[in-house]
Amino acid sequence: MSEDRPPPAPVQSGPPPAGFFEAGAVAVARALIGAVLTVDGVGGVVVETEAYEADDPASHSFPGPTPRNAAMFGPPGCAYVYRSYGIHWCLNVVTGPSGHGAAVLIRAIEPTLGLDAMRARRGIGDPRRLCAGPGRLCQALGITLAQNGLPLDRPPFALDLRPAGAPVLAGPRIGISKAAERPWRFGLAGSPYLSRPLRPAAPASVVGPN
């Protein structure tokens, strides 16, 4: 299956190495847990992701390229930004070779940098609610369609990989009906900043620290 392409090398602190995003979406989604993501210096630690592969019925890329999902078929490591339900922006990072059509949804981060800017954009003060969910995250970081197609390792984005420092849990993705059983949602164990609690259904779903 397409998600079985070689995973990234073991995570070490620093920018993503060459070829990091060319791996399968599932491997990249797990490896991004613990990374620090910022937009113009505002952001924090990635604590929750979801993988969407090209052969995945739940993926936007499954029917093939469209004007909306064109960035998903672009170079690996670039942003795919779309509007959910006509209301919220959602940020994904493209994975696999160009033209493949896979991506990782950034579902939640622990806010650590630029909290005043996030609070102003979100209109709330509780740090646990600033970026707990893809729509909240994009509002807090100021992400819109203007960032669609931009590389995540260049300004205004910055991405530094770091070991998660705690076990990474895997479980079913949220809010989908197709291929809902696939354990392609990843979260940092014990984090209070997840969009929803993530408890593995079986010991095999605890995939360990990065």
Rank of each mutant, 00 (worst) to 15 (best):
I176F: 08
L137D: 00
L159I: 11
G99E: 10
I143A: 00
H88A: 11
V104L: 10
L105V: 12
G175H: 09
P75I: 12
R154S: 11
G190T: 07
A120R: 15
D160Y: 10
F157R: 00
L137A: 01
Y193A: 06
D116S: 10
L152S: 01
S84H: 11
A70T: 12
A170P: 02
A179P: 03
N69T: 12
W89A: 11
G135E: 00
L91D: 02
V94H: 02
R107Y: 07
P127K: 05
L169I: 14
G175M: 08
I176S: 03
R122M: 11
S191T: 11
I106S: 01
G86N: 09
G96T: 11
A117N: 05
E110N: 07
R122T: 09
W89Y: 15
A179G: 10
V93Q: 01
R68P: 09
G187S: 10
E110F: 03
A108N: 04
N69A: 12
L169Y: 14
G149T: 08
T144C: 08
R182M: 14
H88T: 12
L115G: 07
A189N: 06
I106W: 01
M72Q: 14
P167T: 07
A201E: 15
G175N: 10
A201V: 10
I87W: 09
A140D: 01
T112R: 15
P127N: 09
L113W: 11
R122F: 09
N69K: 12
G74I: 05
V104Y: 01
R83P: 06
L169R: 02
A170Q: 04
G74K: 03
C78W: 00
W89S: 13
A79D: 03
A166T: 13
P183S: 05
G208M: 11
D126L: 11
A202L: 09
M72G: 09
L115R: 06
G114L: 04
R136A: 06
G96K: 03
G74N: 07
F73R: 02
A117Q: 10
A204G: 05
P203W: 05
I109T: 06
V168R: 00
I109V: 15
I143G: 00
A204P: 04
A120Q: 15
R185A: 04
N148E: 13
R185K: 11
R68L: 15
A79C: 15
A146M: 08
A140P: 01
P156N: 13
A189H: 07
G114A: 10
A189S: 14
A146F: 06
I174G: 01
L198H: 04
S84M: 14
G123F: 04
P155H: 08
L161M: 08
D153F: 07
G135P: 00
R173V: 05
L188K: 01
P65F: 14
R196H: 13
L194C: 08
A146C: 08
I174P: 00
A201C: 10
A79S: 14
G114R: 00
R136C: 05
A179E: 07
G64R: 09
L115F: 06
L150E: 10
L141G: 00
P134L: 03
L115Q: 06
R185W: 13
P197N: 09
I124Q: 05
P155F: 10
L141A: 03
